[in-house]
């Protein structure tokens, strides 16, 4: 019998989606989860790392720019090197970009407005450890809530993202001006996913959609398969 997985929700000063993330894992997914403060130096005991949304350090200077230098980010980089699943949502995605764990950068939304609404996403890749519970090409509904989700990278990087199938989610209707409708990308190794939409806010039909739950279920499925083979 497999043990339960233990997730870490990293909390920075100004994170505000940490409680939703915790709830999604504990109550909807049914796995273990702990809050981990940004000055922690080791994440060895966790099977998966979640960087929640919010406004870490007040978005001062640039979104994610200050958070990426917090102590815990060294441990996040180590966990990424170790191949552990790392999911950054919204501000978490922005932090992963600033930390260089994912390529590109975020610009202000084209409309200059903060956008908060459910959006339709296309699952571009269902072979990743975060999306293998979806069908490729499937449309899912997950809310966005951001002022800076306008993804940008240079042409060379974009060509690489396409060639390696690193674009995981795209918007059906682009809400923010994002390059190539990009909503979420994964690193080359396939264990670090960043996305602007909030899957943790779409884990119960009572709240409008449960489409986001499959991201967390995919992580668990991948982990169980890997660990059963080893046993």
């Amino acid at each position: 019998m497999c043990r339960t997985l233990k997730f870490a929700v990293i909390v920075f000063p100004g994170s505000n989606c940490d409680v939703d993330m915790y709830h999604a894992i504990k109550d909807e997914l049914g796995e273990e989860v702990e809050y981990v403060w940004h000055d922690t130096s080791s994440l060895e005991e966790y099977d998966g790392i979640l960087l929640p949304g919010g406004f870490s350090y007040g978005d001062y200077l640039r979104t994610g720019a200050i958070a990426r230098f917090s102590k815990v980010m060294q441990a996040v980089i180590k966990a990424a090197d170790d191949g552990k699943p790392i999911l950054g949502v919204c501000n978490g995605f922005q932090i992963l970009l600033e930390a260089g764990l994912l390529p590109g950068a975020m610009r202000r939304n084209e409309s200059l407005s903060f956008i908060c609404k459910p959006v339709e996403l296309k699952v571009e890749s269902s072979t990743t450890m975060f999306t293998n519970a979806y069908q490729e090409g499937q449309t899912i509904t997950i809310p966005v809530a951001h002022g800076e989700g306008n993804y940008y990278c240079d042409e060379e990087t974009l060509a690489k993202l396409k060639a390696n199938h690193q674009i995981v989610f795209t918007y059906r209707r682009n809400p923010n001006g994002s390059l190539e409708n990009i909503a979420g990308i994964i690193n080359e190794k396939g264990n670090v996913l960043g996305m602007m939409p909030h899957p943790e806010r779409a884990v119960d039909t009572l709240l409008g959609s449960a489409d986001g739950l499959k991201i967390f279920q995919s992580i668990v499925k991948t982990w169980r398969e890997a660990h059963v083979v080893k046993a």
């Binding site: 200077l61 200050i66 230098f69 590109g104 950068a105 610009r107 940008y152």
Partner: peptide
Amino acid sequence: KLLANPVI
């Protein structure tokens, strides 16, 4: 390192 993001 910090004050500018060389990507953009």
